[in-house]
Write a protein that binds this DNA or RNA. Sequence first.
DNA 1: GCGATGCTTCGGTTACGATCGAAGTATGAA
DNA 2: TTCATACTTCGATCGTAACCGAAGCATCGC
Lengths: 228, 228
Amino acid sequence: MKEGPDIAQIGALIGDPARANMLAALTGGRALTATELAGVGGITVQTASTHLAKLEAGGLLAQRKQGRHRYFTLADEAVARLIESMMGFAAGRGHLRHRPGPKEPALRKARICYDHLAGDYGVRMLDSLIASGSIDAVGDGLALTEKGESDLKCIGIDAGALRSSRRPLCRSCLDWSERRAHLAGSLGKALLSNFLDRGWARRTAESRSILFSPEGDRQFLKLFPIDA
Amino acid sequence: MKEGPDIAQIGALIGDPARANMLAALTGGRALTATELAGVGGITVQTASTHLAKLEAGGLLAQRKQGRHRYFTLADEAVARLIESMMGFAAGRGHLRHRPGPKEPALRKARICYDHLAGDYGVRMLDSLIASGSIDAVGDGLALTEKGESDLKCIGIDAGALRSSRRPLCRSCLDWSERRAHLAGSLGKALLSNFLDRGWARRTAESRSILFSPEGDRQFLKLFPIDA
DNA sequence: GCGATGCTTCGGTTACGATCGAAGTATGAA
DNA sequence: TTCATACTTCGATCGTAACCGAAGCATCGC
């Protein structure tokens, strides 16, 4: 009965709480050192080291040596998608690790998902882009319209350049907190970078949450209105 | 750092080889008894029983008592999608459990994926539907066109009726053997049922593969041509 | 009622892997 | 060179969970 690919291997890799925590932290897109990841996982560096070696051997992580540090990241976007999709699934089943805590509200409002904006703001942005006719939604799929392309140019995003990369321009990503889609892909990444560059928002040190400044908040809500 | 849903729990559930085998077998869509699943997992019934209880407690399985049998199925389509997406991921990383065996070719040609057609034939069918303008593909999304709706009516499928269900009509599902999309959703299910009803193909007892009769093969290839 | 079948629960064994202390390697700083 | 930092490897411990035999329920056929 051994048919098809081996999902048990990956399942087991993700199945350890310490490893799952590390992977979730890396979904934040930032490269982290072994010591930082040990903190995230609640274990010593030695243990973390063996975990990280396993994750790398399993193809989930990539590492980059830099001086005496070793920075770990998710191997590629596919890993990030897998983790996020499992989070979405888990959230739907009520497999929550804890009761809503203090940091939760900020996370639900806006957080980073690999390299793009997620949470309430991420969902709102996509809704608004669809409502304004900048993005076409067909089923699960998303496509940038001509109107969208010219609108984006106004805020300084060149969709044509993004299109040349092998990565899909628009991709929908299921949000585990909102249970609705937000915008991923290279366009999602470009938009978030744009907000950060403008100083509308900034990433936080240890968490995945994105903090908007009062002014950035105002601008964002103006740029992506929601009709009643 | 405990942020978000608990993916470790589901990872661990899928992470055991015996459980992974059972889940993969249930992706075949057929309801299986505990004894059958024990065989699939290569373990005794006692062990299988505890595994199944865990999977049910985790929300991955549903069971239905019928006489002295107990039939297990995946809890819902979301579970099937999760499993298939993990298979796609695993296949992409080369996490294969074994060298291609004797049953492989049949599986690659046509197999069942929860309740719709996958494998080479599944991919071909979707390609053909898109090429003929029956289905619109935008990004990852799929939508049935008016032409598609009337074409389907000719072979006896009422898309309007399917639309009334809560389940999406068209959904793309990544094929782990072909690494390309095939058609899922209620329409995917309806098409496969149609082929089975017509006697073009039949399911096999223990495997996920779908066997086409010579006549069914001819009809299928005629109905879903591929342009050079 | 009886025995047979399908499945679960209990008890005990076993093995694997997560864990950490301690020692070893590499890089940087002084 | 010497010390400090970042990380890995080694070795040993410990817990958990997978596993099966045997016994316990439930349901069917007779």
